Simulated scan of single mutants.
Amino acid sequence: MRTSDTAYAKINLALHVRRRREDGYHELETLFAFVDKGDRLTARAAEQDALETVGEFATALDNPFDNIVMQALGALPRPGGLAITLEKNLPVAAGLGGGSADAGAVFRIIEQMHGLPDDWEERAAKLGADVPACVKSFTCVGRGTGTELEPIDSDLAGTPVLLINPRVPLSTGPVFAAWDGEDRGPLPEGDARAVMLAGRNDLEAPAIAQCPVIADVLAALGETNPLLARMSGSGATCFALYHSEDTARDAAARLASSHPDWWQMQGRLR
C-alpha cells in the first residue's frame, strides 16, 4: 500500500517581528497561507524507515539522514517503518517552509495510516516553528515563534499566486539577526485579505541587504498588475497574488521570458 501527500508551499502573507527573546528566538505575528503545489511525498510500509530524494532540488539535500523528513518519522510512534520518496520541487532555504512542509506531509501521512498522538502539535513544534502550521496547511495566524496558531476568516482561497525565487539560497538565521530590532506594531485586525493588505514583512529590508536581487524580484512582480507582491518568510522567494488566472499566467510568461534563470511556480491559495 502506498500513500501520497503534497507538502504545500508555505508563504507568509504578512510577517511582523515584535521583539528578540532571551532564548534566541523572535516573537512574531504572521499570517500563514499555503499554495496548492509543493514537494510530493510517497510512503510505503517497510521494515525500517528510509528516505529517497528525487526532483529538481534533490541535490540540495546533501545528508538524507539529517533530513527533517527522517526527524519527523522519528518524532511519531507507529508500528513498523516507512520508506518515503521525496520529490523535491521547492528550492531550499527559500522562505517557503520547504522542509517544514515536508515534515507536515509526513505527519498527515502517518495520521492517515495510524493516527496521531494527542500531543502531535508539541512534537511538531520541536521540529521547527513552522511545522505545526504546515501540518494543518490552511490560512491561519501564527504567534509566539509561529507555533501558536489561531484561525482566521479567509476569503483568499483559490486566489491565483505566482512564486519567484532567484535561485539564491538565503538562510533564516542571518536574516533574523540583521533585523533592526524596531517593533513596528502588531498584525492588523480583520479577515485574511484585510490583514494581508495592511500588513508587511519586517524581514524584507534585512533580507534585501544580504541578497539584493530580492529587490529586483519584487520590482519585476510589481510590474505585473498584482493584487499584492511581497517577500515570503526570510526570503529569497517572493510571491504575487492576482485577481484572475489569466493575469497570473501572463505574469509568469513575462517573467519566464525576461528572467529565464529565476525559478517559478504557479498555483492557487488553498
Rank of each mutant, 00 (worst) to 15 (best):
M1A: 15
S4K: 13
D5W: 09
K10V: 12
K10A: 13
H16E: 08
R18K: 10
R18W: 01
R19G: 12
E22M: 07
E22Q: 08
D23G: 07
G24L: 08
Y25F: 15
E27S: 03
T30G: 11
K37G: 15
R40L: 15
L41F: 11
L41A: 05
R44T: 09
A46G: 05
D49L: 02
A50K: 00
L51Q: 01
L51N: 07
L51V: 07
L51I: 05
G55D: 14
A58D: 01
T59M: 14
A60Y: 01
L61S: 08
N63G: 01
I68K: 02
Q71M: 04
P77D: 00
G81R: 04
I84R: 05
E87G: 06
N89Q: 04
N89W: 02
L90H: 08
V92N: 13
A94Q: 08
G97P: 02
G97I: 01
G97E: 03
S100W: 04
G104M: 00
I109M: 10
I110P: 00
E111R: 06
Q112A: 15
Q112W: 01
H114N: 02
D118N: 06
W120S: 01
R123H: 05
A125W: 03
L127M: 01
V135T: 02
S137M: 03
F138L: 07
T139K: 05
T145P: 00
T145N: 07
G146S: 06
G146C: 02
T147Q: 13
E148N: 06
L149P: 04
P151C: 04
G158Y: 11
T159Q: 12
V161E: 12
P166Y: 04
R167C: 15
V168P: 01
V168N: 03
V168D: 07
P169N: 14
P169G: 09
L170A: 07
A177Y: 06
G190I: 03
V195L: 14
A198M: 04
R200W: 11
Q210S: 15
Q210F: 07
A215T: 05
L218R: 08
A219C: 03
L221N: 04
L221M: 06
L221R: 08
E223T: 06
P226E: 11
L228Y: 09
M231N: 06
S232C: 14
G233W: 13
S234Y: 07
T237N: 10
T237A: 11
T237E: 08
C238A: 14
F239H: 12
S244Q: 13
A248H: 09
A248F: 03
D250Y: 00
A252N: 09
A253T: 03
R254M: 11
S258I: 05
S258T: 13
D261C: 04
W263V: 09
Q264D: 01
